[in-house]
Amino acid sequence: DRLGGRAAFERKYAPGSTFKTVTAAALLANGLSPDSTVECPASYQIPFNRSISNYHNEDHGTVTLRQAFALSCNTTFARLTVERLNGDTLVDQARAFGFGVQGESAGTSTCGSLGRPANQDALAEDSFGQGTVEATPLCMALVAAAVESGEWRPARPLADEAPQGELPQSVPLPSNVAEGLRSLMSAVTIDGTAAGSDLPQGTAGKTGTAEDYRGGQDHAWFIGYRGDLAFAVFVEHGGTGRGAAVPVAARFLRAL
């Protein structure tokens, strides 16, 4: 941890596209499958609202949900969230992954937070980890761990630390959601944004490039798992997840 202090456990950042893992869970729970056909245009115009663009305005046309996740299509997730979900659905799904909601009672969560979307613009932005969504690196490692194990579990204190109150209850994922997310995260490293890297075989994950709301360089993310080990790599102001975070994860996993 080079962030200093306990920042990896306590400091929150926009998780960028790694949050699509949470949004994908909501979509899978609401009728979609990894093989569902979706659109990934260069831009998506929210009806009577703003336009959402892909990174570098990439247009991938008609793809499966698995491919849209692997290619990290902002437009796909914005459109599906606006058309199939709503603010309460996304908030409830995020809460199942340890996220509290801003403005609610203290102690709801120290993992991540998001505001209840006030309109479709806010809902779309939150769907791909921008807007009001914030998470600690530890929080996003727990998201990856939940996909691998099929159950979200809170982080336990280190052996020499006293617990701060009771830990939240574990939350099981529906079997189709867990299986679907594993398929999506495997595709990221096979033929998606983390493909062709030095990651060891069997690694599954999700890249993220998150805008810094203070105006600095983008933050780089890569969350994932291999075997029973889950991880989150976060590089503050590192640029893209592919360029900065994936190589760190590869060195880490190959050194084990």
Rank of each mutant, 00 (worst) to 15 (best):
R2A: 04
L3D: 04
L3W: 09
G4V: 00
A8P: 03
R11A: 13
K12S: 12
Y13M: 06
Y13G: 04
P15L: 09
G16D: 08
S17V: 11
S17R: 10
T18Q: 08
F19G: 05
F19P: 05
K20A: 05
T21D: 07
T23V: 06
A25H: 06
L27I: 04
N30A: 10
G31R: 06
L32D: 00
P34C: 01
D35R: 12
V38S: 05
C40D: 05
S43K: 10
Q45D: 15
P47H: 12
N49H: 15
I52C: 04
I52Q: 10
D59E: 11
V63Y: 00
V63E: 09
L65G: 01
Q67R: 14
A70E: 12
A70C: 14
S72P: 12
N74Y: 02
F77K: 03
L80R: 01
E83I: 03
E83M: 04
L85Q: 05
N86W: 07
L90E: 09
D92V: 06
Q93T: 15
A96D: 13
A96C: 07
F99L: 05
Q102A: 13
Q102H: 09
E104N: 10
S105D: 08
S109M: 01
T110E: 11
G112R: 02
S113I: 07
S113E: 13
L114R: 10
L114T: 03
G115Q: 15
P117V: 02
A118Q: 11
A118T: 11
N119F: 11
D121F: 07
D121C: 08
A124F: 11
A124I: 12
E125D: 13
S127K: 02
S127W: 04
G129F: 08
Q130I: 05
Q130P: 06
T132K: 10
V133Q: 08
A135H: 03
A135L: 07
L138C: 01
A145K: 07
A145Q: 08
V147P: 01
V147A: 00
E148Y: 00
R156T: 14
R156C: 04
D160T: 14
Q164I: 13
E166T: 14
L167G: 01
L167K: 01
P168D: 05
P168K: 07
S170E: 09
P172I: 14
L173C: 08
P174R: 12
S175I: 10
N176W: 09
V177D: 08
E179S: 15
E179H: 06
S183P: 02
V188T: 14
V188I: 10
V188G: 09
V188P: 12
I190K: 15
I190W: 04
T193C: 07
A195M: 11
G196R: 10
L199I: 14
L199F: 06
P200M: 14
P200N: 13
P200K: 14
T203S: 12
G208Y: 08
A210Y: 09
E211R: 10
D218G: 00
H219L: 01
H219S: 01
I223T: 08
G224D: 09
Y225E: 02
D228T: 13
L229Q: 12
L229I: 13
F234I: 07
V235K: 03
G238E: 00
G239L: 00
T240N: 03
G243H: 04
A244R: 01
A244K: 02
A244E: 01
A244D: 03
A245R: 09
P247G: 08
F252N: 02
L256D: 03
